[in-house]
């Protein structure tokens, strides 16, 4: 009884094996066909090993998009090597592809180590600490208007006061430099500056001009 069962099982495996071999063309044959120009073989190869290679990459990088990238780069290398005829057939197509994927995974981690990437999370977001300190469009327009208004107001001042004010505020000169340039004493320059500011305030008050951002 037991012997019969055993012989039955043996005959089953014997009959099954050739069928499976017929369905599954070996990798080495597909690779050879591909090298000789049969593009369809590559599709069979990729589809056959897709899951194993993708899962292998995913198990290391744990990111779907990176997995896609590395999978793609792996097969680009495979295609180039096969087309250049540099592949030596030893019946180890899958281990070879896995090795390429493995090396690319290492490259990926090395690259990330060299260029550290910081991603904010819910607890801490980097943009709450650093921000763009430039004015937004509206504030920039208001600032431009104030600047041009102020320039017109300065034009209203008497020439000597205007000269000192422009040198001090716009050219950022010290009162010593101003006195040397205009040929008046420091005290006179200081006085002119004082009157320039007083006069500006008077004009602003008189016309009810608002100069704030």
């Amino acid at each position: 009884m037991t012997q019969k069962k055993l012989s039955n099982r043996n005959s089953q495996t014997l009959t099954k094996k050739p069928n499976r071999m017929a369905l599954q063309i070996e990798d080495s044959v597909l690779v050879r066909d591909y090298i000789s120009g049969d593009e369809k073989s590559l599709e069979v190869l990729i589809n056959r090993h897709n899951q194993r290679i993708s899962s292998f990459i995913y198990s290391k990088v744990l990111d779907r998009d990176v997995t896609e990238d590395i999978f793609q780069d792996t097969f680009i290398k495979v295609i180039k090597t096969l087309k250049k005829g540099r592949y030596s057939e030893e019946g180890k197509f899958l281990p070879w592809v896995m090795r390429i994927a493995h090396n690319l995974i290492i490259d990926h981690f090395r690259k990330n180590k060299r260029i550290p990437k910081f991603e904010g999370n819910d607890d801490f977001n980097i943009f709450s600490v650093i921000g763009d300190d430039k004015l937004n469009a509206e504030k920039q327009i208001i600032k431009n208007q104030i600047d041009s208004d102020l320039r017109q107001l300065v034009e209203e001042l008497p020439n000597d006061q205007k000269e000192v004010l422009l040198m001090r505020i716009y050219k950022d000169m010290s009162f010593k430099e101003i006195s040397e340039n205009t040929g008046v004493s420091i005290n006179t320059a200081l006085g002119r500056m004082r009157y320039a500011l007083i006069n500006l305030r008077k004009i602003i008050d008189k016309h009810n001009i608002v100069l704030t951002n």
């Binding site: 899951q51 290679i53 997995t67």
Partner: peptide, 14 residues
């Protein structure tokens, strides 16, 4: 976990 590459990627490779 078992994953598979998108068909777009395979099409690109082909």
């Amino acid at each position: 976990k078992l994953t598979e590459t998108k068909s777009e990627t395979i099409q690109f490779l082909l």
